[in-house]
């Protein structure tokens, strides 16, 4: 008996461990599994979406789709108006948003005193990033179309998109300038360079890859934007294409053409022409993002 007691209690303890251990580690494993599922489901949906679009769109994706205007027949329609519009918009948006965004970022990061106006500007920029894009469309409609009398023109579209992506560019440019060591600024100033000389010749060049990456990401956001362009009055499915210098002409854009195709009653537009045009748009986005990643990697290696 004297021997059996500790033995039995040891057995009981072992049993207890055997009982709790599997349930506890099972619960742990299940929880980890649930979390992994939550993370991966977005990726799965992304994959399903891409496969779905590719299956529907690839058979219809051909040269003709990219080089003709809209048509009454799904098999003859094309999105040339959208492609030319998107390229023109991007050229203008890049031209306007890059210098403005960089200027604002340089001011906030290098020159602004820590005062109320600066803090207001900063809070304002993060708020603007959260304003729905359709509201930017209303801004463009009211201010650019009517107050500035620019009409439903390419310029109106480009101005609207520029304001929309400005916060993206400003935030990215500030981040990459902040990554430039203070010692570089001190070194420039200690040589008798002015602040602007130091910033323009040392800080901005050092931060440029990051700034360009941010700009490209901003532009690729602008490529997909549909709502604000609809609101300012982009043309849908018409035989109009615009070059970047035809700023007062009416315009279309790739996502606008896609929206037009989705809205047509015949299934051929929605179920094959639209996915085909989407593939074209996604390829464009992929190209731009690859350039951005390439820039970022080269930057990471060189410093």
């Amino acid at each position: 008996m004297a021997v059996a007691t500790p033995q039995r209690s040891a057995e009981r303890a072992a049993a207890a461990i055997n009982q709790t251990a599997p349930s506890r580690s099972g619960g742990e494993r299940a929880f980890a599994g649930v979390l992994f599922f939550a993370t991966i489901i977005g990726v799965v949906v992304l994959a399903v979406l891409l496969i779905d679009i590719l299956l529907d769109g690839l058979p219809r994706l051909n040269w003709q789709l990219l080089t003709s205007y809209g048509s009454r027949f799904p098999e003859q329609t094309g999105v040339l108006a959208g492609i030319s519009g998107t390229f023109s918009l991007m050229a203008l948006v890049g031209l306007m948003a890059f210098p403005l965004g960089l200027g604002a970022a340089v001011y906030l990061e290098e020159f602004a005193a820590d005062n109320r106006f600066t803090r207001l500007m900063e809070a304002n920029i993060s708020n603007l990033a959260g304003v729905p894009s359709v509201v930017y469309g209303l801004l463009g409609l009211s201010i650019f179309v009517y107050v500035f009398q620019l009409g439903r023109s390419l310029l109106t579209g480009a101005l609207t998109l520029s304001l929309l992506i400005l916060p993206v560019i400003i935030v990215a440019a500030r981040e990459s300038m902040r990554a430039v060591p203070r010692a570089i600024r001190d070194g420039g100033l200690a040589l008798g360079a002015t602040r602007w000389q130091t910033v323009s010749r040392q800080v901005i060049p050092a931060a440029l890859p990051g700034i360009l990456t941010g700009t490209i990401l901003g532009l690729s956001r602008a490529i997909g934007e549909t709502a604000p362009l609809l609101v300012v009055g982009a043309l849908i499915g018409q035989r109009a294409s615009t070059a970047p210098w035809e700023v007062f002409d009416r315009f279309s854009a790739l996502p606008i053409e896609i929206y037009g195709l989705i809205g047509r009653p015949q299934a051929g537009f929605r179920e094959s022409a639209a996915p085909a045009a989407i593939i074209a748009m996604l390829v464009l986005l992929l190209l731009m993002n690859s350039v951005a990643i390439l820039l970022r990697n080269r930057y990471a290696r060189s410093t």
Partner: peptide, 11 residues
């Protein structure tokens, strides 16, 4: 996923 244009998601 966050960068996919919403018109694509709509379709």
């Amino acid at each position: 996923l966050a960068g996919i244009p919403t018109i694509v998601l709509g379709l």
